[in-house]
Amino acid sequence: MQDSRADILGRIRSRLGRTAENAASGRVEIEAVLARREQGPRPAVEADLAARMRVRSEALSSTVEEVARLEDAPAAVARYLAGLNLPSAAVAWPQLAGLDWAGAGLQVEGRAANGDDLVGITGVFCAVAETGTLALLSGPDTPATASLLPETHIALVPVSRIVTGMEEAFDLMRAECGELPRAVNFISGPSRTGDIEQTLVLGAHGPYRVHIVLLRDC
């Protein structure tokens, strides 16, 4: 095993003409690249990030509604589920389990999702306005399965957590988490496939529908 590593790296070095001197200067160069974190060209994104988020999410076949505060979320979720005749039992991020779900007539358990859960409720780490994308980080209070296994995914998105692009999302992660969690999942609408006759079908392996509840004052 070890000799494959030595062999492959050895051949890479010899094909690149690596010597002790240019290895030293090469290391300086890669450190500089890592420190610079140079960005590529960025498309223009309008200043009203919430509006952009809404438009782009809808273009990705998500649905969007807006409420004022986090405390308004349970009622909004209950309305949404009832409107589509979806079950009132859901799994949610443990982080959100403290909200008054029962008061809105929902049976919500805060835990990771299993194959039988039909509705998953999550928050987000942040959201990316450029593409209408949700950014979720895995963790004990924010299990990755809640946005993946259920047929319906409902995400509560504080408007203050909407950033311009993926670059800003990564910056926020570096600033707030130090290093990346096990999984950073960027989610852009319900899961889909176009494999059969290139016909788009929503709900391949992940959720059939994604509903975004924007929290205006959060």
């Binding site: 835990r111 004990p140 299990p143 290093e179 096990r182 999984a183 950073v184 989610i187 899961s191 992940g206």
Partner: peptide, 16 residues
């Protein structure tokens, strides 16, 4: 739809 950046193994306190 999904773009995942995966780093390392499950942490002791993680549930998945």
């Amino acid at each position: 739809n999904y773009f995942s950046v995966l780093t390392g193994v499950k942490r002791p306190e993680d549930t998945d």
